[in-house]
Simulated assay, not measured.
Amino acid sequence: MTQPSVRTWLTLYCLAHAGGSAQSYGRLEAVVPPGVRVVPLELPGHGTRLRESLLGEMEQVVTEAVRLLRQDREEQGGGDGHDRPFALFGHSFGALVAYETARRLRQAGATVELLLVSGRVSPAWPPPHEPLHMLPDPLFTAELSRMGGIPDALLSAPTVLQLFLPSVRADLRMLETYAHRHTEPLDVPVAAFAGLEDALTHTDGMKAWSELTSEAFDLALLPGGHFFLDQPQFREVFADRLARIAPSSVRAATDG
Rank of each mutant, 00 (worst) to 15 (best):
P33S: 10
H82S: 15
T183V: 14
G35D: 03
G77W: 08
L172W: 10
L15D: 01
E143M: 11
V160M: 14
W9D: 04
F193Y: 13
S5E: 11
E143Q: 13
F86A: 02
V39M: 07
A192D: 02
G35M: 09
L219T: 11
L50S: 10
F234S: 00
E29F: 00
A170Q: 15
A87K: 00
E42K: 00
R37Q: 10
G225C: 05
L221W: 04
K207H: 14
L221C: 15
T141D: 08
L115S: 02
A98N: 02
V32E: 01
D137L: 08
Y178K: 09
D72R: 05
L139G: 00
S167N: 01
Y178I: 09
E42R: 04
L242R: 04
G47W: 02
H46Y: 01
V117K: 00
Q233Y: 03
P138C: 09
H129I: 10
D80L: 15
V117P: 02
L41R: 01
R27L: 01
L54R: 10
F86E: 00
E64N: 07
P123Y: 02
A22C: 03
D255L: 11
G77Q: 09
A253M: 13
R251Q: 14
R120F: 06
T141F: 04
T159Q: 15
E184I: 03
P131G: 09
P128V: 12
S248P: 02
W209D: 08
S167W: 03
L10V: 03
G56K: 08
M134T: 15
E100P: 03
F238T: 08
S214T: 14
L219K: 06
E64H: 13
R146I: 08
T11W: 05
R51T: 15
D72C: 01
L96M: 12
A142Q: 12
R104S: 12
G119Q: 04
A102S: 13
T159P: 03
A16L: 01
W209L: 02
E57L: 13
A153Y: 05
A199L: 12
V61T: 11
A252W: 07
L229H: 13
S5F: 09
T11M: 03
F86N: 02
G78E: 14
F93Y: 14
G78W: 11
R84V: 09
L155Y: 05
P44A: 06
P33Y: 04
L196Y: 00
P185D: 10
L161R: 06
L222E: 07
W209M: 06
F93T: 01
R67H: 14
H91G: 01
A22P: 03
H129Y: 14
S210N: 10
G81S: 12
T8P: 04
P33C: 08
A243N: 11
V61N: 00
T177D: 07
T141I: 14
F227V: 04
D171A: 05
R173A: 15
V36A: 07
V188A: 10
G45I: 05
L219A: 11
D152P: 02
R70I: 05
T213Q: 10
D187W: 02
D83V: 12
H202V: 04
S53Y: 05
P85G: 08
D240C: 06
R84Q: 15
S92E: 04
S24V: 07
D204C: 06
R146H: 12
D171P: 07
E29I: 05
S145T: 14
E100R: 11
L163M: 13
M174R: 07
